[in-house]
Amino acid sequence: MIFGMNEELHIKLQAFLDGELPEAEAREVGSLIASDADAAALHRELKQTRAALAGFEKRITVPETREFYWSKIAREIAREAAPRVADPQHSVFSFWRRLFPVAGVVAALLAALVVINRYDPRSPVGIEVAQADSDAFTYRDYEAGTTLVWLSYPAENGLAQENTAGKIN
């Protein structure tokens, strides 16, 4: 048993085995091993374990053919060497893409303006203006039999598309 020894001594025994102790300390530990049964037993165990490992790394071979193994390396080398495509999030196009929803809202406001200007409160003919959700704006003139739908692009959800399909006559 090694309970009688402290951790520092364990580590010193191991360092002695690995030839990592300064000469003076190595002499001290060597004497201890010669005189202390616990120290000698632990030293022996560490030595046996080290000897068991020496030269016994598992012999294992690549489970793929030379060509296949190399092809994956070559592909990765080529991929890494290829000039990187600009990150779409930081491209010039992304700026314009961000403007699409704004453009949709502007179109909707313009449509509303047209409706207000043409609205005649005396007329019994129905004119319906509706904003189904944030993605679609509908103007329906029953008299003229026309329906206009402004969509913000890109549509944020499937609902806008469904509404659009349902309202166009």
Partner: peptide, 11 residues
């Protein structure tokens, strides 16, 4: 430190 020393060479 709680493991007993292995006295027989296991290999």
């Amino acid at each position: 430190r709680l493991m007993p020393v292995v006295t027989v060479n296991p290999t």
